[in-house]
Computed example of a mutant assay.
Amino acid sequence: MRARLILPGLLTATALTLVGCGSEKSASSGSAAEESPASGSSAPAQAGDGSESVPEALRFKGTTVDGKSFDAATLAGKPTVLWFWAPWCPTCKAQGPETAKVAEQFQGKAHVLGVAGLDKTKAMKDFVADTKVGSFPNLADEAGDIWKKFEITQQSVYVILDKDGKTVFTGSLPAGKGLADKLSPLVG
């Protein structure tokens, strides 16, 4: 009896996840993003060295696909692109080259951070190598903790934060096109 109750929920969750892949829908931030706990509305905490404020949006830690510890507090003070992707998603693969190009273009002025989910770390590591997106950090968020923090419900979503950690854009960009245009005004 218990399996009958769990199976429909599991199938629904899987279907919702798969529906997101390939979706080219774009949404700019609105009231939902501004009310999100990741929008930076909470009082800032101090970074480890006490030299700069860390907004709520950047109060998380993770492990890169290469197994290194990562503290998002290191991103404080500059605009940041969070790219939520899954290794089996063709839309995500199409976004890789443009995302890597933007990371290189804005190096030193803004941060780009990949947040992989919905699979195992080995598949995530293979994706980074295959799509050549290793020039910026990519976190292995197998448990989905960072995805939950930013209320991400499907892959291939960008979240762009300004230098103060406020969400200024949440949505998908076909093949990553337009990412540089959204980031440019934030680095000036």
Results as ranks from 00 to 15, higher is better:
Arg4Val: 12
Arg4Lys: 13
Leu5Ala: 11
Ile6Val: 13
Ile6Cys: 08
Ile6Gln: 08
Thr12Leu: 15
Thr12Ala: 15
Ala15Glu: 09
Leu18Arg: 07
Gly20Ile: 00
Ala27Phe: 13
Ser28Glu: 13
Ser31His: 13
Ala33Pro: 03
Ser39Leu: 06
Ser41Pro: 07
Ala43Cys: 09
Asp49Ser: 11
Glu52Asn: 15
Ser53Val: 04
Ser53Phe: 05
Val54His: 06
Ala57Trp: 01
Phe60Ser: 11
Thr64Ile: 03
Thr64Gln: 05
Asp66Ala: 09
Gly67Pro: 06
Ser69Ile: 09
Ala72Arg: 04
Thr74Pro: 09
Thr74Lys: 15
Leu75Pro: 04
Ala76Asn: 12
Ala76Val: 03
Lys78Gly: 04
Pro79His: 05
Thr80Ala: 15
Trp83Gly: 05
Phe84Gln: 02
Phe84Val: 03
Trp85Arg: 01
Trp85Gly: 00
Ala86Ser: 10
Cys89Pro: 01
Lys93Pro: 00
Ala94Glu: 08
Pro97Cys: 02
Pro97Tyr: 05
Lys101Asp: 09
Lys101Tyr: 04
Ala103Leu: 08
Gln105Cys: 04
Gln105Ser: 10
Gly108Phe: 14
Ala110Lys: 05
Val112Gln: 03
Gly114Arg: 02
Val115Ile: 12
Val115Thr: 02
Asp119Thr: 01
Lys120Val: 13
Lys122Leu: 09
Met124Ile: 00
Asp126Val: 01
Asp126Arg: 00
Asp126Thr: 06
Asp130His: 00
Thr131Cys: 00
Ser135Cys: 08
Leu139Gln: 08
Leu139Asp: 00
Leu139Lys: 02
Leu139Val: 00
Glu142Gln: 15
Asp145Tyr: 05
Trp147Tyr: 14
Lys148Thr: 09
Ile152Ala: 07
Thr153Gln: 13
Gln154Met: 13
Gln154Asp: 15
Val157Pro: 03
Tyr158Trp: 08
Val159Pro: 00
Val159Gln: 06
Ile160Arg: 03
Ile160Cys: 07
Leu161Pro: 05
Lys163Ser: 14
Asp164Ile: 12
Gly165His: 04
Gly165Thr: 06
Lys166Phe: 02
Lys166His: 10
Thr167Asp: 06
Ser172Thr: 14
Ser172Gln: 12
Leu173Ile: 06
Leu173Pro: 01
Gly176Gln: 05
Lys177Gln: 15
Gly178Pro: 07
Gly178Cys: 11
Leu179Asn: 08
Leu183Lys: 02
Leu186Ile: 13
Gly188Trp: 11
